[in-house]
Simulated scan of single mutants.
Amino acid sequence: MKNLVLVINPGSTSTKISVFNLNGEEIKNEVIRHAPQEIAKFARVADQHDFRSKSIHNFLSSNSISEENLAFIVGRGGFLKPIQSGTWVVNDKMLEDLKIAARGEHASNLGAIIAYDIAKRNNIKAYIVDPIVVDELDDVARLTGFPEIERTSVFHALNQKAVARKAAQKIGIEYTEGNFIIAHLGGGTTVGAHRKGKVVDVNNGIYGEGPISPERSGTTPVEDIVNLCYSGKYDKPTILKKIHGKGGIYAHLGTSDMREVVKESKAGNTKFKLVLDSMLYQVSKEIGAMSAALDGKVDAIAITGGLAFEPYITDSIKNRVEFIAKFLVFPGEDEMDALFKGAVLSVHGKAPLNEYV
């Protein structure tokens, strides 16, 4: 009986797996951790396909879950061309774009690829929901001072959308009726302005825009970056690593473990406290900027992501921005549930099923 849904969410050093029944109950889940040295063996993300697939097969086998009982599969979406929010059928064109990774290498690219492989051999469908390239930006938010460069929308779309819906429910309105500012704080930080169900402006947390974060540089004076590029000290991969991967908190303190950073700050380490407080100041400033993008009409501000578990972090931001709107905290991320619910709505005909072209 095909009454189960498999959800696959590949991260940089982990693969999250959940199995839901069609009533919405999560019956099994696991986070499979991959040692950095294991991942380092692969030159490209696509090369990890068999390695990750084996982990998923072992999970299903050890929990006595047969692929024959799967109704459909949902994978986390990756670096595709800009698309609208919603559920998308995994098709040949999508797989082609993810495998060549023309728009960027990211572990999430594997979500749709692995989901499709399992779906194909069981004659069922595979879907993705709200990938990181969801693009609903207002036209005025796209321009930069370089005609050759346009701002692009790359952010924690899946979790931001899910949290915005929770915030709307919390204050008693529909997501499509209100205006929200959602800040996802993790290894990277994205702050989005949600107007009536669309993210009309958001910083590109992958490519060095917005606040500094544990692993990313954030907005930095452009001329100084150009000078570094031409200093002869760094090649292109090293500069890019300084922007995302080894930038931000890591570059200043030699660690991106925010538990350590907060602990040291509370213990009186002035350098750690200055860097941490600077990050929180910049997040607050970004929230303020997004309130302007919403013409000052904000129903609620919500903080989410792994860093939202730490009161020092959320309280610092709250003290600076609660004058704008009601302040809410939704710690962690509920991406597996969001992937499942998004796909179910579309499969049951309550939301569109989109075809990638």
Rank of each mutant, 00 (worst) to 15 (best):
R52L: 04
M94D: 09
A193L: 03
K16Y: 05
I317C: 00
S64M: 12
I8H: 04
L95D: 10
D224C: 14
Q84N: 15
G77R: 01
A162P: 05
H34P: 01
G192C: 09
Q48R: 09
Q37M: 06
D135L: 12
V191L: 10
I56T: 06
L253C: 06
Y116Q: 14
L274S: 10
K326V: 14
A102K: 15
I287H: 08
I301Y: 03
G332T: 03
D135A: 09
F340K: 06
P352S: 13
A292S: 13
G187V: 00
V329F: 07
N204R: 04
T255C: 10
L80D: 06
S108F: 04
A162V: 06
S153F: 15
I27C: 01
G77M: 03
A162T: 01
T220K: 07
D47I: 04
G187Y: 05
E322V: 13
I132C: 10
S265N: 04
I83F: 02
Y127E: 03
G248N: 10
K28C: 07
G192V: 07
E174I: 09
I39A: 12
K125I: 01
A302V: 08
H184R: 02
R76C: 02
T255M: 14
T13Y: 12
I132N: 06
L185Q: 09
L6I: 04
I206P: 14
R216I: 15
E322N: 14
K350V: 12
G78W: 10
A308Q: 00
Y230E: 15
E38I: 10
I225T: 11
V129C: 05
T15Q: 05
H184G: 07
A107S: 14
N3L: 04
T176F: 11
V134T: 06
Q48P: 01
S217C: 15
V31F: 08
E174H: 01
S61I: 08
K125D: 11
A112S: 07
R142S: 13
G75C: 00
F59Q: 04
K263H: 15
D337M: 14
A119V: 09
G197A: 07
R151A: 06
N91P: 09
H106D: 13
F340L: 05
P82W: 13
A71R: 11
I206M: 13
V298S: 01
V329Q: 08
P211L: 09
N354F: 13
D299T: 11
I17N: 10
G86Q: 13
I73E: 03
G192W: 00
K242T: 02
I65T: 08
F42E: 09
N3W: 06
L339G: 02
V283S: 01
G248C: 08
S66F: 12
D295V: 12
S284L: 07
I8W: 04
T15N: 12
I171A: 01
V31H: 09
F327T: 14
